[in-house]
Design a protein around this nucleic acid. Structure first.
Length: 491
RNA sequence: CGGGGUGUGGCGCAGUUGGUAGCGCGCGUCGUUCGGGACGACGAGGCCGCUGGUUCGAGUCCAGUCACCCCGACCA
């Protein structure tokens, strides 16, 4: 009652904002475009971080940290890169404040102007490749497989919590290789890792593919990506992995002696996922009652709500709950016993639904009498009374089932929303009436891509790896097409 | 940067032809409640975004200014 969520059907983007606010994931801050990630939201992000970090390390990567500031001159080294990021860079020009001579407060000290202005990193390729120059001399120094967890700043015109903020958190991997093949292999390895993470951990089905030239990362030879579909039929890029060729090695003069004693430029990759995944998580699974969290990402997997009329009853319930909790914990389940006396059970039920807690156990006088527990699952909003005896075992398998069910549901939705269009009219109609991904032939030119975008707002999300449609004719230009690509309106 | 809108207790809002600020939620205390967001009683809480002007008197009218939100152009 106190916390009403706008239904999705009424206003999807308001629904999203309501959820982010009311589930206490994040809020707007005093700084335009920057968000405060609140403890509950941050706990989910930490779960993502922990799993990704594990996966990176399993594949031989190590963490390091590079500076927040990047000398302006570094930026101009790689032409495409500067072109891509110049318009959204925050710049540090001074290093000192002083008291305002005309009154109260402080002003920038004009005498403290920096010799060389510093860019606040929008991404770290330049500072990292400038550093790698000193680290790489021989093929024996390669590969370098480094990841960093960091914040970056991109001065966006319009922002939305998690989906697009001026400052965001992410991880950026930056690897250096002796051969092109090895670098491409790395790029692909990571896009596969991201897809595995998105699907098996976050429960979000994604399409792996390659970006068109127009959508490619500034400074990359190829950009691979995973694309997800949100419940409103818009696509969301969930992660990217770039094959950078020798572009940054050339820009920063990073060379190594190969086995034959010849000097060669180093091959590079970079890849990242960001707090945007939080937005994907919300928009992929949640409903009008609140968040729906896959158990793998839920800060609280099981909440236990006691139902009682008086202290004596509460004591008896607490005693029973105290037996159950260690059994759940022993199975690696995160459990919270909400014994807050200031809230009533009904309030708690609604609250934990809003927060997306996958499983709720309720225990009251009836359960004491029958030796049962009421088990409610968030994904289906169903509940049933089950024997308390083996409840830990039941909950463990239920969590697995919920994780799978959430993914299946999202996948069914995604699959239903990939449609083929063979004519321009069909394309426009589908886009307008259904949304989702549209698989269509494209002549491969940037001109056509841009025209389609101008006329429909749809962009090429990717050329899927597993696209086997064969040749055809472009829906827009009628020219020959090598294969179908996926279009969508994207976040 | 264009177009639109909003600034009033913590949050959401009302405030008429200018007359000294009110409602809901939340908050505090007490009591009754407790298996799907309980109820009653009492209570605390407001330089009305900021600056200047008109006026006997401004939340209200005028001018300026700042901030934020929404819609576009740019983007993970």
């Amino acid at each position: 009652m106190a916390k009403e969520i706008t239904p999705r059907a009424e206003n999807y983007s308001q629904w999203y904002l309501d959820l982010v606010n009311k589930a206490e994931l994040a809020e707007n801050s005093a700084v335009r475009g920057c968000m405060v990630i609140k403890p509950y939201g941050y706990a989910i992000w930490e779960k993502m971080q922990a799993q990704l970090d594990r996966m990176f390390k399993e594949t031989g990567h190590v963490n390091a940290y590079f500076p927040l500031f990047i000398p302006k001159s570094f930026f101009s080294r790689e032409a495409a890169h500067v072109e891509g990021f110049a318009k959204e860079c925050a710049v540090v020009t001074h290093y000192r404040l002083r008291n305002d001579p005309d009154g109260k407060g402080v002003v920038v000290d004009p005498e403290a102007k920096l010799e060389e202005e510093l860019i606040i990193r929008p991404t770290s390729e330049t500072i990292i490749w400038n550093t790698y120059r000193n680290w790489i001399h021989s093929h024996r120094d390669l590969p370098i497989l480094i990841n960093q967890w960091a914040n970056v700043v991109r001065w966006e015109m319009r922002t939305r919590l998690f989906l697009r903020t001026a400052e965001f958190l992410w991880q950026e991997g930056h690897t250096a290789h002796a051969t092109k093949e090895e670098a491409i292999e790395e790029t692909l390895k990571i896009v596969n890792l991201y897809a595995d993470f998105a699907e098996n951990f976050m429960g979000i089905p994604v399409i792996k593919g390659i970006k068109s030239e127009n959508e490619r990362f500034a400074g990359a030879e190829d950009t691979y990506c995973i694309e997800g579909l949100m419940q409103d039929g818009k696509a969301l890029q969930c992660g990217t992995s770039h094959f950078l060729g020798q572009n940054f090695a050339k820009a920063f003069d990073v060379m190594f002696s190969n086995r034959d004693g010849m000097l060669e430029h180093v091959w590079a990759t970079s890849w990242g996922v960001s707090t945007r995944l939080m937005g994907a998580l919300v928009m992929a699974h949640s409903d009008d009652n609140g968040l729906v969290l896959p158990p793998n990402l839920a800060p609280i997997q099981v909440v236990i709500v006691p139902i009682y009329k008086n202290q004596e009853e509460f004591n008896r319930i607490s005693a029973r709950v105290a037996e159950i909790i260690p059994r759940l914990k022993a199975r690696g389940i995160t459990v919270k016993f909400d014994d807050n006396d200031n809230r009533k059970p009904g309030w708690k039920f609604a609250e934990y639904e809003l927060k997306g807690v996958p499983v709720r156990l309720a225990m009251g006088p009836r359960d004491l009498e029958n030796d049962t527990v009421e088990v409610a699952r968030r994904d289906t909003l169903t509940k049933q009374s089950l024997p308390a005896e083996n409840i830990d075992e039941v909950v463990e398998s239920l969590l697995k089932e919920i994780q799978e069910n959430i993914f299946k549901k999202a996948k069914a939705f995604r699959d239903e929303n990939i449609r083929k269009a063979d004519t321009w009219d069909e394309f426009k109609t589908l886009l307008e009436e259904k949304g989702g991904f549209i698989s269509a032939h494209w002549d491969g030119t940037t001109e056509t891509e841009i025209k389609i975008k101008e006329e429909t707002k749809a962009t090429i999300r990717c050329i899927p790896f597993d696209e086997k449609s064969g040749t055809g004719v472009c829906i827009y230009s009628g020219k020959p097409s090598q294969r179908r690509v996926l279009f969508a309106i994207a976040y």
